[in-house]
């Protein structure tokens, strides 16, 4: 084993890591935002709204992520072109970002839904009794408590998402893993590079979950 060839490859791997982290962060933010709206729709009294959201969630949870990524890569430019009438490529990064947000939203939705359902009806009644409307009751009372309770699960899903971003190799994006693998191939040492990549994935994932445990202890009342 000879790890010395990794050092000259570090700058390009840092670029790859940056892309991985950017994709992860934006997908988490978008996924939780869309997932929360989906959860509210699923719990809505409006039958049409709740079954549409239910269909969405069940559909995305029933197909492999790799399929979604490639499908979006080919379909999204086509759909955008069809809507706007222009024929401009949007790039693999944007299509992956949209794919991840929409795919992960289905999983985040189920977490947030369980979180909302864990808040007692009494809390909602108390918010209503003080004159709050539905939006205020959700935004000020229910969701802050739900997110606190769901933090471990949201974090767990985010770490899975972080690891899943490596699937973007399928559409040729140079994320961290893809960069490491191609740099390893160039110097003929794929094993060293993959071991190194695995170590970095472990440090980030493990570090994140440890950090959350610490934050949870500090902020729980």
């Amino acid at each position: 084993m000879d790890f010395s060839n990794i050092i000259p490859a570090l700058p390009s791997m840092m670029d790859g890591l940056w892309l991985t982290l950017k994709l992860t962060t934006l997908a988490i933010i978008g996924g939780i935002a869309i997932g929360t709206l989906l959860a509210l729709a699923r719990l809505s009294n409006n039958k049409i709204l709740s079954s549409l959201a239910g269909f969405y969630v069940n559909y995305f949870r029933s197909i492999p992520l790799l399929l979604v990524i490639t499908w979006f890569y080919f379909m999204v430019p086509f759909i955008i072109g069809w809507i706007t009438g222009t024929n401009q490529p949007i790039g693999a990064l944007t299509s992956c970002l949209i794919a991840f947000m929409l795919f992960e939203a289905a999983y985040f939705c189920e977490i947030v839904r369980a979180g909302i359902q864990s808040i007692s009806k009494g809390q909602i009644n108390a918010a209503y009794a003080l004159g709050m409307n539905y939006r205020q009751a959700m935004q000020l009372i229910v969701l802050p408590q739900a997110f606190r309770k769901m933090m471990p699960l949201l974090m767990q899903q985010s770490i899975i998402l972080f690891q899943d971003t490596s699937l973007v190799y399928a559409v040729g994006l140079m994320d961290f893993l893809n960069t490491a693998r191609s740099r390893g191939d160039i110097v003929g040492q794929p094993h060293e590079f993959l071991i190194f990549a695995g170590l970095i994935y472990f440090v980030i994932s493990f570090g994140a979950s440890t950090g959350v445990t610490y934050l949870k202890k500090r902020f729980s009342v």
Partner: peptide, 30 residues
């Protein structure tokens, strides 16, 4: 509802807010 006060069997204070914030929230937002 904002003009009718209600007190519940299980208190239903908002656990994620301090006592002061519990008292202030609806006054400000509603």
């Amino acid at each position: 509802r904002s003009r009718i006060g209600m007190v519940f069997q299980n208190f239903e204070l908002f656990p994620h807010l301090s006592i002061t914030e519990n008292l202030m929230l609806a006054q400000q937002r509603v």
